[in-house]
Design a protein around this nucleic acid. Structure first.
Ligand code: SF4
Ligand code: SF4
Lengths: 134, 134
DNA sequence: AGGTAATTAGAGTAAAATTGTCTTAAATTT
DNA sequence: AAATTTAAGACAATTTTACTCTAATTACCT
C-alpha cells in the first residue's frame, strides 16, 4: 500500500480546504469528512510543519493552503504525512538481517534503486492540481 | 512500502534459482541466502502456485523456473508472494469507514484509479530479466 | 517395497506499523 | 480574562508483516 489512510485523509482535507476562503478548523473538517478528529489533527499538523498548510491558532483559526495547488506534489504530501518519503523498499532498516550484508554485493539492489527513482519521479510529477481535477 | 520483505526474498531466490541447472531446495536456498527457512518455504510455495516456479517433491527435489525470465513480471511476482496485486490504496477494505460512502462521490477516487493504473503498468513493464540485469 | 528427502498445508506466534485516543500546554481572537 | 483553536507527546487498539511449528503428502532411490 503506497498510500495509507493518513494520506487519503490528507488529500480529502486538502480538497476541502482549498474550496474555502476562510480557515477550516480540524473539528470542522473532522465533522464534514467523517474522519477521527485527533488523528486528523495530527495529519494537519504535519502538513503545516512541511509548509503545505498554514495553521492559525485561536478563535476563527484553522488551516489554509500555503501554496498554489499546482505547486504541491504528491511526493511532498506523502512525505509530510507519513513522516518520510514513500519508499519502495527500505534496505537501511534491515541492516542486521540483510542476506547480503549491505547493498554492495546484492543482486537486486541496483534494481531497487532504479525502481525507487521511477516511483519518485511519478510522485513528483503529480501535483495537487492534477490529483483533485481527475 | 510497495515491496515487502517477502518479495525481496522472492527476488533473491529467483535470481539464485535461475543460475542453477538443478532444482534448488528450500533449505539450500535458506542457507545460501540466509533467509528464515519456513518463511521462505511459504514464499516458494506461492511462487509455485502461481506458475512462476515448478516444484519437485522428494529426494533431489526443489524449485526450478517455470518460464523464461523475460516472461515473468514484477506484477506477477508481487501478486503471487503477497497473495494479491500491489495496491496503491484499497478503498474496498474501508467500506465501513469510508468518509464518502463509496467512490461515487469521492473527490480523490478518480485519481486513485488513475494512479493505480500507472503503477500496474510500471509493474507489468518490469520483467525478471530487467530486474536481475540492472 | 521401504526409507528418506523434499514439498504442502495450515494453524499459530511475535514483532512492527498503522490507526486512533487522550490530556495538557500554548497561542490567538474577541 | 474567556473562549477557541492548534501543538505536542504519550498512550492504546488494530492490522499487517514477518516468522515458526507440526503434521501430512509426494516422489525419488536403492
Ligand atoms: S539483500 Fe539486497 S535488498 Fe535485501 S536488504 Fe540486503 S541489500 Fe537490501
Ligand atoms: S473516501 Fe474516497 S478514497 Fe477514501 S475510501 Fe471512500 S472512496 Fe476510497
Amino acid at each position: 500500500m503506497l498510500i495509507t489512510r493518513a494520506t487519503e485523509y490528507a488529500l480529502l482535507s486538502l480538497d476541502y480546504i482549498r474550496k474555502s476562503e476562510y480557515p477550516i478548523g480540524a473539528e470542522q473538517l473532522s465533522d464534514a469528512l467523517n474522519i477521527p478528529k485527533s488523528f486528523l489533527a495530527k495529519i494537519l499538523q504535519n502538513l503545516a510543519k512541511k509548509e503545505i498548510l498554514i495553521s492559525k491558532k485561536g478563535a476563527k483559526g484553522g488551516f489554509v493552503l500555503q501554496k498554489e495547488i499546482k505547486d504541491v506534489t504528491l511526493f511532498d504530501i506523502v512525505a509530510a504525512v507519513e513522516g518520510r518519503p514513500a519508499m519502495v523498499f527500505d534496505c537501511t532498516q534491515y541492516t542486521d538481517t540483510c542476506p547480503n550484508n549491505g547493498p554492495k554485493n546484492c543482486t537486486i539492489s541496483p534494481f531497487l534503486v532504479n525502481f525507487q527513482k521511477k516511483i519518485d519521479a511519478l510522485l513528483h510529477s503529480l501535483s495537487l492540481e492534477d490529483i483533485l481535477s481527475e
